[in-house]
Design a binder for these strands. Structure first.
Length: 289
DNA sequence: AAGTAGTCCTGAGTGC
DNA sequence: TGCACTCAGGACTACT
């Protein structure tokens, strides 16, 4: 799925098309994403204006003038495409093309939203691990989707002291701890692997046994890799696209992720793949101790 | 309590 | 060309 950098890239792409705009028409095409649409979902969105588009962890949050927030999670394969009504139109830094015939009527197009910009926004998710729901804005933090989420890794509060404290009692491998959204919210498989490589930490090392000096390196590595990925427009593997349909570019800069058998950019050794908690981990056993 | 399999779903890639 | 099999960026649930 889109991890934090991909969601942030989509947010930046969508913001100019959504903020201040009013939903004139909303259609849901298939009932079942991860959470079924409530039956009045489309009705509660229609006629509402988007005040602000923000991100929490891997969730996109569109605050509406009705006091509700549209919550979007892209799952593993979710995509938000923007088509600006009928003609090419510059919205902020993004140029969106006209909607091609049939845009929004694809097999896996689940939600089609028209705005008064005018623009058409299509939520596509062939694996249906994504989610779209409405939550009362004031109750968002206490909602079950959000109440256990951990720290934002790009926030100022996320530092070595914080992380050392969070990992102190965790015996799970550091790689698994980094994927735990209750610890750090927004980190996923790609950037957990890349950050551990940059910090020279073995993914197998018990989280509580990572030394303070390494924890400081890890915090720096997480922040750096996320920032670089956002700057590159995220990573495109199979499904991910930016809101304007372009590919992200960070996948060309992976040091270890998806590079099993290839040379390690640090020592020239071989990148290995192991499985931890059912997920692939890529690492260099020589560089990462 | 904490950690780890299994599960949801579909498509892409690989090997025979 | 086609079939069988494996794997995928996430996260919830039910086990141990």
């Amino acid at each position: 799925m889109p991890e934090l950098p991909e969601v942030e890239t989509v947010r930046m792409g969508l913001a100019p098309a959504l903020e201040g705009c009013l939903f004139t028409k909303v259609e849901t095409r298939r009932g079942g994403l991860r959470v079924p649409f409530s039956k009045d979902f489309a009705k509660r969105l229609t006629g509402r204006r988007v005040l602000h588009l923000r991100r929490r962890a891997k969730y996109l949050l569109a605050d509406l003038d009705s006091g509700e927030t549209l919550v979007v999670h892209l799952g593993m394969s979710g995509r938000m495409a923007v088509y600006a009504g009928g003609r090419e139109q510059k919205l902020g830094q993004y140029v969106y093309g006209a909607a091609p015939p049939g845009a929004g009527s694809g097999k896996h197009d689940h939600v089609v939203m028209e705005t008064d910009a005018p623009a058409r926004i299509v939520f596509t998710d062939h694996r249906r691990f994504g989610l779209m729901t409405l939550v009362e804005t004031v109750r968002l933090d206490g909602d079950k989707l959000f109440k256990d989420l951990g720290i934002e890794p790009l926030s100022g509060e996320f530092d070595a002291v914080w992380l050392a404290h969070a990992l102190k009692s965790k015996k799970t491998p550091i790689k698994s701890a980094l994927l735990d959204q209750r610890v750090i919210a927004g980190l996923g498989n790609i950037y957990a692997c890349e950050a551990l490589f940059r910090a020279h930490i073995s993914p197998r090392r018990s989280a509580s046994k990572v030394r303070p000096v390494s924890i400081a390196l890890l915090v720096q590595a997480i922040k750096a890799v996320l920032k670089e990925a956002i700057k590159a427009g995220g990573s495109s593997l199979r499904d991910y696209r930016k809101a304007d349909g372009d590919l992200g570019g960070f996948q060309h800069r992976f040091a270890v992720y998806s590079r099993e058998g290839e040379p390690c950019p640090g020592c020239g050794g071989t990148v290995k793949r192991i499985v931890q908690a059912g997920r692939s981990t890529f690492h260099c056993p020589k560089c990462q101790k």
